[in-house]
Design a protein around this nucleic acid. Structure first.
Lengths: 220, 220
DNA sequence: TTATAAAGTTAGATTGATCTAACAAATTTT
DNA sequence: AAAATTTGTTAGATCAATCTAACTTTATAA
């Protein structure tokens, strides 16, 4: 009843990710997120419930317990510390690190991640602007806003991205969109919510799909 | 027929380790080395033979194929690069790195290990003095000798250790025995082959069990 | 050179993680 | 509120990796 399997860890992580909005997660959503079938989820929920990592009753939504949430946060902590290490200490681009961190997050060695943490100077944000959970499992998001929720005329700084996939980040790279750049919202197309922004003198047109993945802070 | 499971990788690594002496390995030895039962080995050998990673026929000893040997060397390469990285770039002691590397060696990301290699300046030896296999799978051991095979009066340099376990290396640490130290063999007890050595002015008594794990080079 | 011991294999069971097919409950639509 | 749809569960199968028990082959020793 002590260590969780790699598979169990992935369920916990998925549950945490899906809990951002509602804190209750459906079997269906979890199955889709993990690309597995619902019966597999049902049986795993029974196992995780027996380990007191989730709250689960037939036909009711799933909730992480405090213990489950902490274990999940521990994995996310390892993931984000790793991403930070790969970028800051090893020279990878932010678009290269997600898949590697996805594997390294399962390494069992507190000393390894403590050392990363120390070498990095105890960072609080990963290369994509997401908060690194602290050792107790607390995860503190800054008060960001989605670019898709901004108004024409707003001046903002790009502070985080909600998708760390290589493809998305390569797209941002191609437009020179990195964390910290300052943007001005020029106009929003009412029909499809496409946004035209200025970055210095350059103009870019970004689809709503993209803007929903970009978190910004207002600058005054 | 492309990727090997973690379990398969561990069989290949074990086969390579056991091949140092004879290049043919018995089911029994492999079972003992992996702390599993013989029938499990038999069935895995059938699988690895189907993947052309080993040569295997009933009641005959097991041999790695060229392909199997290369895959095994690839894992050892990842293991030893990792150990080197942990010591040289992250500040771990040589006694701390084996267990972490044992996990990281299974990470699937050529870029990750290439980056380590580059940051380390393409090292050829790991922190325990073992050669890092090159990318083609070649492993070149220097011409070392076991301390247990030396004669009284020999002056030698400690060049490698044949056991990377934390316990063994802590023992060496406690005696200030690191790679590169110069030793003189003072005497060998005929009864149990215990060796007395001088390190500068200090004297140490080392059991035969320990001396068999220490590889040295003669100094002239 | 036969008897005994050691090494190796086969057969069948177990466990974890997955699946499909069939059924049941809950929700949504008409 | 009945019908249709979606969601969730159960039952039973599969696959990988392991085990034990029983049997066979090979090696060793008397």
């Amino acid at each position: 009843m002590r260590v969780n399997s790699l598979t169990e860890e992935n369920y916990l992580k998925a549950l945490l990710a899906l809990s951002v909005t509602s804190d209750e997660v459906s079997v269906n959503d979890l199955a889709k997120h993990l690309a597995i079938k619902m019966p597999t989820v049902t049986s795993m929920m029974k196992k995780l419930a027996a380990k007191r990592l989730v709250q689960y009753e037939s036909y009711k939504p799933i909730k992480l317990t405090k213990k489950g949430r902490q274990e999940a946060a521990g994995i996310v902590r390892k993931h984000r510390l790793t991403e930070m290490f790969l970028v800051d200490k090893m020279g990878f681009g932010w678009e290269q690190v997600h898949d590697i961190a996805e594997q390294i997050e399962h390494i069992k060695s507190p000393a390894f991640f403590d050392k990363m943490d120390e070498l990095l100077g105890f960072p609080t944000l990963d290369p994509h602007g997401s908060p690194i959970p602290d050792k107790t499992g607390k995860i503190e998001w800054k008060h960001y806003e989605k670019l898709s929720d901004c108004k024409p005329g707003d001046k903002v700084t790009l502070s985080a991205v909600l998708n760390s996939s290589s493809d998305f980040l390569k797209f941002l790279n191609s437009r020179d969109l990195k964390l910290g750049v300052n943007l001005k919202i020029d106009s929003i197309e009412p029909f499809d919510k496409t946004i035209t922004i200025s970055i210095g003198k350059r103009k870019e047109v970004l689809s709503n799909l993209v803007c929903e993945k970009l978190l910004v802070e207002k600058v005054t």
